[in-house]
Every structure is written in C-alpha cells, then in structure tokens.
C-alpha cells in the first residue's frame, strides 16, 4: 500500500475544552489515485490532510508512505519527507508575494534533484506569458495555477490539495480540477483533495466522507467523470 493511515487520533485543547477532531482514522490509498476527502466544517478533513502533510502531528497512530512512518520522524526528517514526497496546494494559494510567477515555480523546482522544466511547465499551465508578473497582478485562477506549478514542478509522489477551488468561480474551478486530473494522469502523482464540494467526488478514484472525526464512507469510484464534465 502506498499511503497508509492507521488509527490516527488528534485532539485540540485541554480539560473541559478538549475537542477530539480525529477519532481513529484508518485509510489506505493506492499510488496514482485521486482521493477526495469530503465532509462538513469541523469534520477533521483538513486536520487529517495536515497530518498526512507532516505539518501537524497525530496524538496516536501513524501515517506511512512507502513504508516510511511519519510518527517516527523528528523535525528534520519531517522536512525531508515533505521535500521528497509532497506537493501542497492551498485555497489561499500562498504564493510568495515578492517573487514573480516563474520564480515562485522555481522555488518548488529548487527542492528536487530532477525537477520538471520550469518553462515547459509554465507553458502547460498557460502562465508562460505572465511569468514576469508578481502574484498580485494575476487572477485567482492564475495564482492557483502557479501554486499547482510550484507543487508539481518537483514531481512529488503525493499532491495534497486543501480546498483548491474554494476561492474560485465555477469556470475557473473546473479549469483547476481539470489541471489536477491532467497532472495525476501525466505524472502519476497521488492526489489527496479536501473539499466541501460534493460534485468533485465524481472525478475521484476514492471518496472518503468524514463526519465528527470519523470516516463514515470510504468508497472506490468505478465510474470516474472527467473534470470538464463536472457540474454543480
């Protein structure tokens, strides 16, 4: 199994205000799958994503990628883990405001020994002509494309997407989802995507529904719909 999540528990606060956000999550994801995590606010999906991404730690249980357990890792090892395996896409893009578009992508490329060609990637993303602009000169969709470029330029094993279309309009959202699907297909990256949008589950290989820190449904989608055909 490529990604294994075993009995992951996480709580916040102490004493009476203690709140258990993840109550023992077990999940397995195959390499190259698109896995969509669905659930209402407070269901624990973003917390789970952050634990997979090594930017938060589980109170109990472990995450394992290709047999490497994050629970055993110290700060430095976690950094190496993120560097080697992960690409991150956020709802807020989190581009570095004082770097231009090309440089933002190069920030991702720097982390890899064999990154993708930055100019080719920018052309693929439709950003080549904007490469000298700063992030705040671009639309939300273009910024998110840049964030995707930065995430995939190092050809990561897993692409973690936290509400990647949460801040975008309908058309741009579909373009971004199409792009994520293309990246998955072209580079074979495993995609874990957190979303509120129920319609997105149709493009996934695996759909996991969380509620109150517990997985309610974990289904394999046999009949995937192309991202371009999604409707909501």
């Amino acid at each position: 199994m490529f990604l294994e999540i075993k009995n992951v528990k996480k709580s916040f606060g102490e004493g009476e205000s203690r709140q258990e956000v993840l109550k023992g999550i077990d999940l397995e994801v195959n390499k190259g799958e698109i896995c969509v995590l669905l659930g209402p606010s407070g269901s624990g999906k973003s917390t789970l994503l952050n634990i997979i991404g090594g930017i938060d730690t589980a109170d109990e249980g472990y995450i394992s990628i290709n047999g490497e357990k994050t629970a055993d890792m110290n700060e430095k090892a976690l950094t190496r883990y993120r560097r080697r395996h992960l690409g991150y896409i956020f709802q807020q893009y989190n581009l570095i405001p004082n770097l231009n578009i090309k440089e933002n992508v190069e920030v991702g490329a720097y982390l890899s020994d064999s990154p993708l060609d930055v100019d080719d990637l920018l052309k693929t993303l439709g950003l080549y002509e904007h490469r000298h602009k700063l992030p705040n000169q671009l639309s939300g969709g273009q910024q998110q494309r840049t964030a995707i470029g930065r995430a995939i330029v190092k050809n990561p094993d897993i692409l973690l997407c936290d509400e990647p279309t949460g801040a975008l309009d309908y058309k741009t959202s579909k373009d971004i989802l199409k792009l994520i699907a293309e990246v998955n297909e072209k580079y074979g990256s495993t995609v874990i995507m957190v979303t509120h949008n129920d319609a997105i589950k149709l493009m996934a290989d695996r759909v996991v529904k969380l509620r109150d820190g517990v997985i309610r449904h974990n289904t394999v989608n046999e009949q995937k719909t192309a991202a371009a055909d999604l409707e909501w």
Binding site: R83, I96, P97
Partner: peptide, 12 residues
C-alpha cells in the same frame, strides 16, 4: 506566511 509556506514545501 511565506516562511511558513517554504517550511511546508520542505525547505530546511
């Protein structure tokens, strides 16, 4: 925020 993001990306 940028520092945090570079940490997430895997910068040491």
């Amino acid at each position: 925020r940028s520092i945090s993001m570079t940490k997430i990306l895997g910068y040491t």
